[in-house]
Design a protein around this nucleic acid. Sequence first.
DNA 1: CCCCATGTTGTAGG
DNA 2: TCCTACAACATGGG
Length: 261
Amino acid sequence: MPELPEIELLKKYVDATALNKKIVKVDFTSTSLLQSPKENFIQALKGKKIEKIERLGKYIFLKAGKNSWVVFHFGMTGKLEYYQSQEAPEYTHMTLSFEDNTHLSFVCRRKLGKIYLAGSLEEFIKDQDLGKDALDFTWNDFNELLQEKKGGLKATLTDQHSIAGIGNVYSDEILYQVGIHPKSKAEKLTEKDKKNLFEKMKEVLELAIEIGGKRSEFPSNYLIRHRKEGEDCPNCKGKVEKTSVSGRSTYFCPSCQKVKK
DNA sequence: CCCCATGTTGTAGG
DNA sequence: TCCTACAACATGGG
């Protein structure tokens, strides 16, 4: 569930379901994802109202009382589920129960997610050294960032300390949409490349949010619809290839995307 | 059994 | 210091 668009949709989901509800019970099925002692979570959350929900990058923050936030990171398979029944979903790690007998569970099959406590967003951002959210970047921010980066472009796009929110799938998509090879070096981009990249970064992420993150709803000229080795490139006669960049599986079209190095 | 998967982090080396 | 490669984490699916 994990990149910026999916997390933004999850944020909206929690806004629509759990906002302003009072937490009457906090349960743990496991404590292995907790970044603070279980007791601290109970103390911070029990009896409190969920006052506000925020997202930054791939994190979701729930405000429960003054200077008290619970922060979720979803790893590859995490999500939040709101429900009324008694039974928590499979792979639930933590459940908040509300006065109206509804529940919000943090569900994470592969256990790569994390749950934190924080006094403020600012403090959390500082502790984690998180970059600015991809959707909050201005052209100036983006230009400056790429100016100071020496390494691979995809590594920078997916580095949460530089730009928060972009992951493996959307970085491939953004690079495909601007016709730049994922193995390109940030320092070799022209001003025009960078401008295009900046605009497509926003466009791709915003479109993904608009269509509810459903893969089948993306335009047919999106790589995400053809994210498989040997698929036809939707823009030319080439075939989609798979390679490894920054240690991740990377899909691209070798004739539409040329390396700048 | 093999490899793959929307992520992050620690380590080793250049 | 900054960058890269790679293993590790954990678990289900093909």
